[in-house]
């Protein structure tokens, strides 16, 4: 009998997070359908995120997230609507967050462990963290009506306020 303190576990990424991350990255990819190039990057990113989630490769997920992000920047450069760009950014960040979290939980706790609540809470927090600045930004963007430098200034002020408030 070999006495190991930690018996081997099935360390593939956790189920709930895998599903949520795939859904988020798919949503981001679909939002990038405004131009062919951005959709191509988005599709590549989605495939990489999926591959990383199946195999538990963190670097593939990060590369996939980078692919989606490139798609977002390209979509922004070709003049996609602001709501689409912001939505795609938020889903990209959320997808990466949930995917790496799922890989993490899978490695630490294993697939047999009950981690549903942990994953759902993390996914919810992630979505909220992305949604609040996205919504606030969009509202500011709409009210400013474009043209002036009001939006960047307002966002800059918002960022400063955020840093001050959150400073430990």
């Amino acid at each position: 009998m070999t006495a190991t303190a930690t018996p081997p576990i099935d360390d593939t990424p956790a189920r709930t997070s895998t599903g949520l991350a795939l859904a988020a990255s798919l949503a981001g990819t679909l939002a990038l359908a405004v131009s062919t190039v951005s959709l191509a990057f988005g599709g590549l990113g989605f495939v990489l995120v999926g591959l990383g989630l199946v195999r538990g490769w963190r670097s593939a997920v990060t590369l996939g997230g980078a692919g989606l992000f490139c798609g977002v920047v390209l979509a922004g450069l070709v003049g996609a609507p602001a709501s689409v760009v912001v939505f795609a950014t938020a889903t990209t960040v959320v997808a990466w967050d949930i995917a790496t979290f799922g890989i993490d939980v899978g490695e630490e706790l294993g697939r047999e462990a009950d981690t549903r609540r942990l994953e759902l809470v993390h996914a919810g927090a992630s979505v909220m963290t992305a949604a609040i600045p996205a919504v606030v930004g969009m509202v500011l963007f709409r009210t400013a009506g474009g043209g002036t430098a009001l939006v960047p200034i307002a966002l800059l002020c918002g960022a400063v306020v955020l840093v001050v408030v959150l400073r430990p």
């Binding site: 992000f69 689409v84 963290t129 930004g137 963007f141 939006v151 966002l155 959150l166």
Partner: peptide, 30 residues
Amino acid sequence: VAGAAGVLANQPALVVAGTVGIAFAALARA
């Protein structure tokens, strides 16, 4: 990067998108 690309290409949508990243960075920093 997103914000700078938005400023250079005169695309305010990208600047707004950049705030999402800033929010996560701020949360992690705090």
